[in-house]
Nucleic acid binder design. Structure first.
Length: 485
RNA sequence: GUCCCCAUCGUCUAGAGGCCUAGGACAUUGCCUUUUCACGGCAGUAACCGGGGUUCGACUCCCCGUGGGGACGCCA
């Protein structure tokens, strides 16, 4: 009964894919999946001056990273120029468009006059009834709007919206250089691609009546429209290429998991009761246009970070290792890529996941832990520096612990403490009893040990968890350095 | 300026006339926990833009005002 759902994301390759674009793509993608429809991609590269291949590449790779690939081959508008031209000529012959020979200066002058007169600036319709013949150029082709009546539509999110026709500009469909413009091609291609629902930013509301006119002129069925609220920057202004560009790949480089970015974005303008956290699958199952918000939403990095942490906890360790190896290999110094694959690395990650939000942080934590050698640390801030006798006592205790573990390792011929049965609580117990015999507080002992063994001033893993897992060879080297400090 | 859209805590939002002394989340504040970091737990501060209607009853419906945003390109 209903036409199959076919939606599209149609960016122009004039900049890197930004966050607002991702949100639009996401809502389209979710809508398509939810309704067993198709999610299509179209590259709107009719602005020959500003379109660049590298931006197309960026958009495509970013979407791939986010897991939102197109279901059919991508359509490039620059490859369809003859189609647009033929259609425009046809519209002229039907009296629905006309050739315009006005120069930019003339158009501009008329516009300024209108602003002075307190009217909406638009083309003065000078050539509207002049019937310029096809042969003489150069000329642009403009749409010939009706002068009376109203053009409206029912927005799926906002309801009825309508505009007086007299306010509709006879916009340029084809430039004098033969290249068509956005408002024309968007309709031609949405018809061509059999798009059932146009889901886009609400900055396009004003374009919609122009496009509706074109659907009618072309004799094509109209899609349903849904206009999404804008994502606002910190200044409460539209977040766009021209205002605080936030490119998607910047988030990948910072270490955000794609599902975290998507989760944050889906909650910008959409809600499902009180639920904050969604897996990609849940978004698909739960998404609907009914619960899309109408007013703009400010981009809030703090919440994004929190969401990132929540998704980090749930991420599959093997997958994290893969991301580390491909996107963050530069974060490791003195650590081989093989070390990332080791059982040791694998055993560390679940301990780090609850305490870290970004993959980059995970890398920073892992780097000193995986390094087989000594990591030089700055111990000047250690409390023990204030009291030499106390310091000696602490070292004595640490030395005792080390030799106890040394012999345990030697006896069993093991590579790590966990291999010879020493676990979290064993380390805990050993340290506590040491404290008692040496008259120390637990923190006195653990503070320097933590610093030297982790090799990181703000290590996120607990010492009791780390000690059993770390290759004893590495731990010894570091404990030795601690004793000499 | 003209046209269009919008309006609940600082931010993202719940709320489809009585369930609201307005709920959740982030942030923030305090406390607790703790291997002084991080994580976690508990508690707190904090909002219906204003004015008129409609109604027995408005955060919810209507109108006006105000405020904010968007569009006014031979950009998309």
């Amino acid at each position: 009964m209903n036409a199959p759902v076919r939606v599209r994301f149609a960016p122009s390759p004039t900049g890197f894919l930004h966050i607002g674009g991702v949100r639009t793509a996401l809502f389209n993608y979710l809508f398509a999946r939810k309704h067993d429809g198709k999610f299509l991609l179209r590259i709107e590269d009719t602005d020959t001056d500003r379109s660049e291949q590298r931006f197309t590449d960026d958009i495509l790779s970013s979407l791939q990273w986010l897991g939102m690939g197109a279901d059919e081959p991508i359509l490039y508008q620059s490859q369809r120029l003859p189609v647009y031209q033929a259609l425009a000529d046809d519209l002229i012959s039907k009296g629905l468009a006309y050739r315009c020979t006005c120069t930019e200066a003339e158009v501009e002058a008329a516009r300024e006059q209108m602003i002075k007169d307190g009217k909406k600036p638009m083309y003065a319709r000078t050539c509207r009834d002049k019937n310029h013949p096809a042969g003489k150029g150069p000329f642009a082709i403009r749409a010939k709007f009706p002068l009376q009546g109203q053009t409206g539509f029912t927005d799926m999110i906002r309801g009825e919206i309508s505009f007086p026709n007299e306010d509709l500009d006879d916009f340029v469909m084809i430039r004098s250089n033969g290249v068509p413009t956005y408002n024309f091609v968007v309709v031609v291609d949405d018809v061509e691609m059999k798009i059932s629902h146009v889901i886009r930013g609400d900055d396009h509301i004003n374009n919609t009546p122009k496009q509706i006119f074109l659907y009618e002129a072309l004799g094509a069925p109209k899609p349903l429209f849904a206009h999404l609220p804008m994502i606002l920057g910190q200044d409460k202004k539209k977040l766009s290429k021209r205002n605080g560009e936030t490119s998607t790949n910047a988030y990948r480089d910072q270490g955000y998991l794609p599902e975290a970015l998507l989760n944050f974005l889906v909650r910008l303008g959409w809600s499902h009761g009180d639920q904050e956290l969604f897996s990609f699958e849940e978004m698909i199952a739960l998404f609907n246009l009914e619960n899309v918000q109408v007013s703009g939403a400010m981009f809030n990095t703090e919440k994004l970070l929190w969401i990132a942490g929540e998704h980090m906890k749930k991420a599959d360790p093997a997958r994290l290792i893969g991301i580390l190896k491909t996107d963050f290999k530069g974060a490791f110094s003195g650590v081989s890529l093989e070390a990332l694959e080791s059982g040791y690395a694998r055993s560390l990650i679940p301990h780090l996941q609850p305490k870290v939000k970004l993959v980059s942080e995970l890398a920073a934590q892992l780097d000193p832990l995986l390094d087989p050698g000594l990591r030089v640390v700055d111990s000047s801030a250690l409390k023990w520096n204030k009291d030499e006798t106390q310091k000696a006592r602490i070292k004595e205790a640490i030395g005792a612990l080390k030799s106890a573990f040394d012999s345990k390792i030697a006896q069993a011929g093991s590579a790590s403490l966990s291999e010879c049965g020493v676990d979290h609580s064993a380390v805990d117990g050993a340290l506590r009893s040491l404290c008692e015999t040496h008259g120390l507080k637990l923190g006195d002992l653990t503070q320097p040990m933590r610093l030297f063994v982790t090799g990181h001033p703000a290590a996120s893993i607990g010492l009791f968890d780390l000690l059993p897992l770390m290759p004893w060879k590495t731990a010894s080297i570091r404990l030795e350095a601690c004793l000499k400090a």
